[in-house]
Amino acid sequence: MSIHTNLLGSLVAISLGAILTNNFIFSQFLGCCPFLGCSDKTDTAAGMGLAVIFVMGLASAICWVVDHYILIPLGLAFLETLAFILVIAALVQFVEMFLKKAVPSLYQALGIYLPLITTNCAVLGVVLLNVQNDYSFIESVVYGITGGIGFLLAIVLFSSVRERVQFSDYPECFEGFPICLVSAGLLALAFMGFSGMSIM
């Protein structure tokens, strides 16, 4: 994805790319474990998706700062992965504590998903892609948030599919995860349709 001189234009391009054409789950295959693990009910899927948006946006912002003000000036760009993992883990812990105190209802709703995000590859993926694509601060944050929105879209769509699949007639040997993986694959194929979309 090339960087546009027009900031707004580039932000739109980044958003559309992150949500549809380069959806984290369906075309980059990042964050597949919560995608399969937390998608049996639409409610929990939406909760997980919202938590991911939140953490991805925040992680993008903080990791950009860490990268540009600490790692790059010191010539330590090779430590990015390590430093980002540290940042994400600490961030998730902090957010968890904050929510427990400030918004207990949201904390209850997110439940186990918040700590699960610590080890979510989509979050690490988004911050590393920010570096790879050489995004500016604003672009990074937008990429993080829209990447999260793409994740939310994917997981909510998929959980709705799963809720229906449960009551449909399929061969017994497909019971459980097999039918789930097949439907995930079909959904990903459908999303491949977006890849023909050219953005400006």
Binding site: L79, L86, F94, M97, F98, K101
Partner: peptide
Amino acid sequence: SLGILGGVFGGLLAFASKIFHV
């Protein structure tokens, strides 16, 4: 840098756990 980063985050978390203690 990693040591300091880790130390700062650790300190912040320790501090936060005091503030946000439930």
